[in-house]
Nucleic acid binder design. Structure first.
Length: 276
DNA sequence: CACGTCACCTGCGTGC
DNA sequence: TGCACGCAGGTGACGT
């Protein structure tokens, strides 16, 4: 499920539930889920730490602990779920953190809970690190931050000779866009996913900059998109302009949406609104 | 540096 | 019903 708006939605919903709780134990049910350190080191070092803050950087969930950081990437099918303590693990639970009742000043219910990392396809990963830079260091700018300006965006686009969509998906270029929100933003900006980045004009860059931020904010406002069997309660999927709408009318001009493949990813465009 | 291909995984929808 | 196939919100390691 997870692009920036979905991860942001999850971070916001987990924050009041998790802050102030102590990690009593980690139950690793699929060892490769733990990217670093070793499973053994992870279990030892995570135990006893108190959750201080829950945030997001790009598509990473950032759980700040008393003396380290837990970074979680949900990849394609990951999800984080609050369970009642010691409930039976579900089929695709890859990691379960057993948490204490929160400290007295916290607002969440005063009973222990489990935090389950459920991930059908097993692509998701977690890291435990004192220095988040080790994991997040190569990420590009956060698209909703003040540092991401139209001018810098235009300069950065022109510094590459690539197709537009693959560059937007490159997390070292811009951090947080995925397949859905990229297609949506390109359509809103009336730009073709295969357009060469080197030729993007200042005006087009400004349009795309605005479109990216608008689409991401709308995604967050709608609590993300919920597709297929992974449901999180968001409803942005009901407002897609092009994504997954092959053959259906473009919301702007009515032309049938087409599907092409760009960089191995299914890509949706309006052939009339978006020209190369 | 840019781009293509494959790998990592499971499950769902489609068509025969 | 069974089975093959294509598809899926992500990323990283290769090779050319």
């Amino acid at each position: 499920m997870p692009e920036l708006p979905e991860v942001e939605t999850i971070a916001r919903s987990l924050r009041p539930e998790l802050i102030g709780r102590t990690i009593l134990a980690a139950e690793v049910r699929w060892p490769r889920t733990v990217a670093s350190p070793s499973v053994r080191g992870f279990k030892e070092r995570v135990q006893g730490q108190v959750i201080q803050q829950v945030g997001r950087r790009a598509k990473f969930l950032h759980i700040q602990l008393s003396s380290s950081n837990l970074l979680i990437h949900l990849r394609m099918s990951g999800d984080l779920q609050i369970r009642s303590a010691q409930s039976r693990p579900e089929k695709h639970d890859r990691l379960i953190l057993h948490l204490s009742a929160p400290s007295s000043q916290a607002t969440a219910p005063a009973s222990p809970i489990d935090l389950a990392f459920n991930d059908t396809r097993k692509f998701g990963r977690v890291w435990l690190t004192a220095d988040i830079h080790e994991v997040l260091g190569n990420l590009g700018p956060e698209p909703l931050s003040r540092a991401f300006t139209p001018q810098r965006f235009h300069d950065a686009l022109r510094a590459h000779r690539r197709q537009l969509k693959p560059l937007l998906l490159d997390q070292t270029f811009l951090a947080g866009l995925g397949n859905i929100y990229t297609d949506e933003a390109l359509h809103l900006a009336k730009l073709h996913p295969l357009a060469p980045t080197h030729d993007v004009t200042a005006r087009q860059a400004w349009r795309l900059h605005t479109a990216i931020r608008l689409i991401l904010r709308e995604g967050i406002r709608r609590n993300g998109a919920s597709i297929d069997w992974v449901y999180r309660g968001g409803d942005f999927q009901n407002h897609f302009r092009v994504y997954g709408r092959l053959g259906q009318p473009c919301p702007v001009c009515g032309t049938a949406i087409r599907r092409l493949v760009v960089g191995q990813r299914g890509t949706h465009v309006c052939p009339k609104c978006q020209r190369v």
